[in-house]
């Protein structure tokens, strides 16, 4: 009898712990909604699509921050994905055995560097380099595109996206590598036996088999990029404007909260910042749900039809 009751208690305790995680999320959402209420009442949906951010006149619109977060993360992903896949394919399939472990370790080390260090590197190395070398080059040869026009500040959307991409490369590449390593050798041999070259084998057997796992890696990387605060704040230029140019300074949701929270003196100002936090939460939630759905569709397609 004693054993049975212990089992029951264990089950209850585990259930409570599991539910408390869900409860915590609900509490978080509710309390944020409560504190954001003044701003929600005052601006309503205008908050989402106006670009004015004027603490003096107390007019707040979050569009530039939403734009900054989404675009910087999307650009980062665009740059990081091919590089990460290249790294993962090399480490899992092509590298000589003696190089695999040390290289994987070095790449994972990139993930362990604190983001403030990335930020410093961005300010002292990346931004000047972009300002003096990369941006003039892009302007000279691709200046006809609105993407590459405007002043060369160094700091701005481009440097933020580059820093973010460097920060998510270790995540995407190390998870993709793990996924590639789980591809059964029977898959590779099936391709080889058909007369596939090395590259064809990787494309046919490895990338095809691993694609839902790679998608998962991409989502984790994207999640990291969306929420990244410190490094981005240091290099994005912190100007709440929407510009078509990658050279122009921008602002993200996480950065504005970090920068202005301590100086938000009025209730409405504070409330507007909390509402931005609330939106950030929802943007990440929506992207995660969309990605989950995508993974689910891909793997369901693989499993049965």
């Amino acid at each position: 009898m004693k054993i049975k009751s212990a089992d029951l208690w264990f089950k209850k305790a585990a259930a409570i712990l599991a539910l408390s995680a869900a409860a915590l999320v609900i509490l978080l959402v509710c309390s944020m909604a409560y504190y954001a209420l003044p701003a929600i009442r005052k601006f309503g949906l205008h908050f989402l699509h106006t670009s004015t951010w004027d603490p003096v006149k107390e007019i707040f619109g979050a569009l530039p921050f939403i734009y900054g977060t989404v675009i910087s993360s999307a650009l980062a992903l665009l740059m990081a994905l091919p590089v990460s896949l290249g790294i993962a394919v090399y480490l899992a399939e092509l590298a000589p055995c003696c190089l695999r472990e040390p290289l994987s370790f070095l790449i994972e080390l990139l993930a362990a560097i604190p983001s403030v260090v990335y930020g410093l590197w961005g300010i002292f190395f990346l931004a000047p380099f972009l300002r003096e070398t990369v941006q003039p080059f892009l302007f000279r040869y691709f200046g006809f595109l609105p993407l590459f026009q405007g002043e060369f500040y160094g700091v701005g959307m481009l440097s933020a996206a580059i820093i973010l991409s460097i920060m998510i490369i270790p995540t995407i590449s190390s998870i993709s590598r793990e996924v590639f390593l789980t591809v059964p050798s029977a898959q590779r041999e099936a391709a080889l036996a058909l007369g596939a070259t090395r590259w064809e084998t990787i494309r046919l057997a490895v990338l095809g088999y691993a694609r839902s796992g790679v998608l998962g890696a991409v989502i984790l990387g994207l999640g990291r990029a969306l929420g990244e605060t410190m490094a981005v704040t240091m290099v994005i230029g912190n100007r709440p404007e929407i510009s078509g140019s990658l050279f122009a300074p921008a602002y993200t949701m996480a950065s504005v909260i970090a920068n202005e929270f301590s100086e938000a003196t009025t209730d409405l100002y504070l409330s507007a910042l909390i509402e931005i936090g609330f939106i950030l939460f929802f943007v990440t939630l929506i992207i995660n749900i969309a990605a989950r759905a995508l993974i689910w569709r891909v793997s369901a397609k693989i499993k049965a039809k």
Binding site: P184, A186, Q187, E189, A190, A191, L192, A193, L194, G195, A196, T197, L204, A205, G208, Y209, R211, I302
Partner: peptide, 21 residues
Amino acid sequence: PILIRRKIGMVFQRPNPFPAL
């Protein structure tokens, strides 16, 4: 070896179709 493998087909112990195709 690639041309040789195209002349010699192989069927494996466990069925291994490409799952993504």
